[in-house]
Design a protein around this nucleic acid. Structure first.
Length: 507
RNA sequence: CGGAACGUAGUUCAGCCUGGUAGAACGCUGCGUUCGGGACGCAGAAGUCGGUGGUUCGAAUCCACUCGUUCCGACCA
């Protein structure tokens, strides 16, 4: 057992332990912020690369907007400023001066600048300059950037004051096309989560009270963490004409009439890595799905026998080169030969904690046999797999299948957990309260069975229910797109209701 | 931003109540024995005790302020 805290005993500390032992990130000396270390950033780079391709395949182009947004821009959209006002970093001065040996801000700005919490307002401003005719539409852009939200209670990857993300922004000439865009991107996110991150998600719409400030509709993907809580993994917003009206994005339509554009925005962030951890990591540390692993195969040469050191290194290098010619998921296999001056066994466990999918040890015996010993991260504690010796060529030829199997197994495991933990048999407010009176944190013997997870049931939509949900610390995660249409009983109010929603505690 | 706890070596913590020049374990370095699943022995290096100010002959220890971390809550497209 590598970790000081295991999942069933202390889930929040386990989460932080995983990040520490996998060397993914650490709390920065700059309050509320994180330092993303190479292994964590490498995973983010993989997410970026895979998602960026999908964004471009759906006809978007990347560009970049300023991180400083004039305060007045936020006042243009009433709901938007209301939703974000509480958590903004404000730049008020343009220089420092020395007073009594201390640096103090000087030269106040005429208009304060906001460090972007999201870029709808400044991008809408540009759109208004770019769009004149229906022939200029649609505008479909994306930016990879950092944003700042002054969170009071930071948690690595899940909620930090500064985080990295991508935000897409589009403008369209009509309602239908814009709605379709918001939907398209939601499914691009679902594809990323499920096929690349091996993290199944539910799709749906946010209830009115939980929409993005200024949006007409907010669509979301929600993932189930191992403790049964929900993580909002990404959102896609149909903004209607709200931002177009406040930023004056007008165009002349085919009938020579002035019309406001319809806009959308959509984003995912480094929070996905938090989701990745809470979906896949175990009591030994991180487990990274092959498609996201910065290194999919790590080779550790065992160099105790000085006489054969060169020979073993040559063999390890030969293996590395042979593996590089293999491919997985349409890309070359990423191989790391770990040459550091440390004991082989220490390196083996280090890469286990980091969650590298396949770890190979290359020692003197392998030279003679033309073989190698490989370990599958998913079975790291299964003694039956401790002696996975395999012929050199046989391994090289099957590495792609092995990675594929690991990727698929990880997804199936997570999918099974999601499928098995959405309760649909809770039919009354009494049963509902009883169920959620349990705590989330404790898992039963079966780590695939959190005590409290998702409940799918009816909701009447009344305002009073929102207050009750707050008291119970439960949220409506999504209104699924597929609705049964059957009448039932609202799990909060007990009134008649037909709308199906997903209830859960959340991060 | 409210409540609570905490801040001492790279890490986890003891010492504080009852003031007198800094401790352990793990980790790290060296040597040796082991070692294809987290090993061991011996030796060694490593801390202006979060910061500022106060009380005192003397402060890790007492007091005030401040900064930060963790947990709970509020907040969190």
């Amino acid at each position: 057992m590598a970790l000081k805290n295991i999942r069933e005993e202390n889930y929040p500390e386990w989460y932080q332990n995983v990040i520490a032992v996998a060397d993914m990130a650490e709390v920065s000396s700059s309050p509320g912020c994180m330092v993303i270390k190479p292994w964590g950033y490498g995973i983010w780079e993989r997410i970026q690369r895979l998602l960026d391709e999908k964004i471009k395949e759906t006809n978007h182009e990347n560009c970049y907007f300023p991180m400083f947004i004039p305060l007045s821009y936020f006042q243009k959209e009433a709901e938007h400023v209301e939703g974000f006002a509480k958590e903004m970093a404000v730049v008020t001065h343009s220089r420092l001066t020395m007073v009594d040996g201390k640096l103090v801000p000087a030269s106040p700005l005429e208009e304060p600048l906001i460090v972007r919490p999201t870029s709808e307002t400044i991008i809408a401003d540009s759109f208004s300059k770019w769009v004149h005719s229906y022939r200029d539409l649609p505008v479909m852009i994306n930016q990879w950037a950092n944003v700042v939200r002054w969170e009071m209670r930071p948690r690595l990857f899940l909620r930090t004051r500064e985080f990295l993300w991508q935000e897409g922004h589009t403008a369209h000439s009509n309602f239908i096309e814009a709605e379709k865009e918001a939907e398209t991107m939601l499914y691009v996110y679902k594809d990323l989560c499920e096929n690349d991150m091996a993290m199944p998600v539910l799709t749906g719409k946010k209830p009115e009270y939980d929409k993005f400030p200024g949006a007409v509709n907010t669509y979301c993907i929600e993932a189930m963490m191992q403790d049964g809580r929900s993580l909002q993994a990404g959102t896609s917003h149909f903004l209607g004409q709200n931002f177009a009206k406040s930023a004056d994005i007008k165009f002349v339509n085919q009938n020579n009439e002035q019309e406001y554009a319809y806009t959308t925005s959509w984003g995912v962030s480094t929070r996905l890595i938090g989701g990745l951890i809470m979906t896949h990591a175990d009591d030994e540390g991180m487990v990274v799905p092959p498609k996201l692993a910065p290194y999919q195969v790590v080779i550790i040469p065992l160099l105790k026998d000085k006489a054969r050191e060169e020979e073993i290194l040559a063999y390890a290098n030969k293996l590395k080169d042979a593996l590089k010619d293999a491919s997985f998921g349409g890309e070359k296999v990423r191989v790391k030969l770990d040459n550091r001056l440390k004991d082989g066994v220490d390196k083996m466990w280090e890469w286990t904690r980091k969650g590298a999918p396949i770890i190979i040890e290359v020692g003197p015996k392998d030279l003679d046999k033309n073989a190698l010993l490989w370990r599958n991260r998913l079975n790291i504690n299964d003694k039956n797999t401790w002696k996975n010796f395999e012929g050199f060529d046989e391994f090289v030829n099957s590495v792609s299948d092995k990675l594929s199997l690991i990727q698929n197994t990880m997804f199936e495991r997570a999918q099974e957990r999601l499928n098995n933990n959405i309760r649909t048999d809770i039919k009354t407010p009494e049963e509902f309260r009883e169920y959620f009176s349990n705590s989330n944190v404790y898992l039963e013997n079966n780590k695939n069975a959190p005590k409290v997870s998702f409940v799918k049931g009816k909701w009447c939509g009344d305002d009073e229910t929102i207050e009750t949900l707050k008291e119970l610390r439960i949220t409506i995660r999504a209104i699924p797109f597929e609705q049964s249409g059957e009448e039932g009983v609202c799990l909060i109010s007990g009134k008649k209701a037909t709308l199906d929603v997903i209830y859960a505690r959340s991060y």
